[in-house]
Amino acid sequence: MTALLPIVEELADAADHHTRAQWLLAVPLTIIVRDHLTIRRLLTAAGFHEGLSYLEAEIAALSATRGRDGLAPITIRTTREYARIGVQIIARGCALEGESQA
């Protein structure tokens, strides 16, 4: 028996970066906040550097003091979007490669 939530176990059981990227894009942000240390450990062990960048950007955005407009500073928002794009490319690119091989 493990202390991980079933949704975090999905990340632990992921076989490749494609699956990890899909998981990161789909997991509720509350899980990222709650289990970010475990998620960081799993991504580090897998050598998924793009996923780590995305995780750190999400944590920074969720932790940032917001301005009068209710938004995090533009530097944090931009970093978050670039990190998200990197993970999206991995999530989509691998899927397209898999489709062409079938």
Rank of each mutant, 00 (worst) to 15 (best):
P28I: 01
T79G: 12
L55Q: 04
G70D: 08
V87M: 08
R77N: 12
S100A: 14
L96C: 10
I59H: 05
I85R: 15
E58P: 01
L96W: 13
D16F: 02
E99D: 11
L43V: 03
A3L: 08
R92V: 15
L4M: 06
A21T: 05
A57V: 06
A14M: 01
L5T: 03
E56T: 10
L25T: 01
Y54T: 01
A95C: 07
G98V: 08
A64H: 05
S53D: 13
A83K: 09
Q88V: 15
E81R: 15
S53R: 15
I74N: 10
A14G: 02
G98Q: 14
S53N: 13
I31R: 00
V8N: 00
G51M: 06
L37Y: 04
Q101P: 02
L25V: 02
C94H: 15
G98E: 14
M1F: 03
E99S: 11
W23F: 05
I76E: 11
D69P: 06
L4W: 03
T65Y: 09
A91F: 09
I90Y: 11
S100M: 14
H36K: 03
G86Y: 08
V27G: 02
E10L: 08
L25D: 04
A72G: 05
R20V: 03
R80L: 15
L62S: 04
A91C: 09
A95Y: 10
D69Q: 06
L11K: 01
A95P: 05
L62D: 04
Y82T: 12
A102W: 12
A60P: 04
C94M: 14
R68C: 07
S100T: 15
I32N: 00
Q88Y: 10
E81A: 13
R20A: 11
E81N: 13
T19H: 07
R80Y: 12
A72M: 06
D16Q: 03
E58M: 13
H49F: 08
R84A: 13
E9G: 00
A45I: 04
W23Q: 04
R80E: 12
P28C: 00
E9Y: 03
A95H: 14
I76Y: 10
L71N: 12
R80M: 11
E97V: 12
H17L: 05
I39E: 01
Y54M: 01
Q101N: 11
T2H: 11
H18L: 07
H17Q: 12
F48V: 02
I85V: 15
G67N: 05
Y82R: 15
T78E: 12
I32Q: 00
E56C: 07
A15G: 09
E97T: 12
R66D: 06
Y82S: 13
D16S: 08
T75F: 09
H36Q: 07
A64K: 05
G93S: 08
A61K: 09
H17K: 09
R40G: 02
Q88H: 11
A15D: 07
D13Y: 06
L24M: 12
E97R: 14
C94F: 14
G67Y: 06
L62W: 01
R77H: 08
L43G: 03
V33M: 04
D13I: 02
R40N: 09
L4D: 07
Y54D: 01
V27S: 02
Q22N: 11
G67E: 07
I31W: 00
L42V: 00
P28T: 02
T19E: 12
P73H: 09
L42D: 01
L4I: 01
A102C: 08
L96E: 15
Q101S: 14
G86S: 13
D16M: 02
T19S: 11
V87G: 08
L11I: 01
E97W: 12
